[in-house]
Measured scan of single mutants.
Amino acid sequence: NQESVVAAVLIPINTALTVGMMTTRVVSPTGAPAEDIPRLISMQVNQVVPMGTTLMPDMVKGYAP
């Protein structure tokens, strides 16, 4: 099972992602793949992402898996 990126903390809208904001988990439906964490760092979210929420590609500005 592939791990997806999950918010480790509450991420406010327009916040640039840091490694400490993200964790990985096997979830369904799958979100952004765990191996993309290095690409996701410094990208901004376009909505509030509550802690424990799977990071879906459409939540991150300019990100395409």
Rank of each mutant, 00 (worst) to 15 (best):
T23V: 10
S4G: 05
M59Y: 04
S4I: 07
G52R: 04
T15A: 12
A16G: 08
R25N: 08
M56P: 02
T53F: 13
S28T: 14
G62R: 02
A7D: 03
V26D: 06
T53K: 11
M43D: 03
Q44F: 12
T18A: 10
M43G: 00
A16M: 12
A64M: 14
P29A: 00
D58A: 13
I13N: 12
E3K: 14
E3D: 05
P38V: 10
N46R: 08
S42L: 08
V48H: 11
R39C: 11
T15R: 05
V9S: 04
G52H: 07
P38S: 10
Q47P: 03
V27A: 04
V5I: 14
T53S: 12
T24H: 10
T53R: 11
N46C: 10
P50T: 10
A7M: 07
P38K: 09
S42T: 11
I11H: 01
P12K: 10
L55N: 01
N1P: 14
M56H: 07
Q47S: 03
G31D: 03
P50K: 10
M43Q: 05
T53I: 08
V9Y: 06
V19P: 11
G62H: 07
P29M: 08
Q2K: 12
G31H: 04
V26Y: 14
L40S: 04
D58K: 12
I41N: 00
L40R: 02
V48D: 15
I13L: 11
I11Q: 02
Y63W: 06
D58R: 14
T15I: 07
P50C: 10
R25M: 10
T18H: 00
S28A: 11
G62M: 05
I37C: 02
K61C: 12
S4R: 05
V60K: 03
T54D: 00
M21G: 06
S28Y: 15
I11L: 04
I41Q: 02
T15C: 09
T15P: 00
S42A: 11
T18Q: 11
V19K: 13
G52V: 01
A7C: 05
P29V: 01
L40K: 01
M43P: 03
D58W: 15
V27W: 09
A16H: 13
N14L: 09
G62T: 05
T24M: 08
T15V: 09
R25I: 08
L17C: 07
N1D: 15
A7E: 00
G20Y: 15
V6Q: 01
D36K: 04
V9D: 00
L55F: 05
T30P: 15
Q47V: 11
T23I: 12
P50F: 10
V19H: 12
S28G: 00
Q47F: 09
P65N: 10
M21I: 06
V9A: 02
T54E: 01
A34W: 06
R39K: 12
P65F: 09
A32Q: 00
T30R: 15
P29Y: 07
P65V: 13
G20F: 13
V45F: 02
T15H: 01
L17K: 02
M43R: 11
Q44D: 00
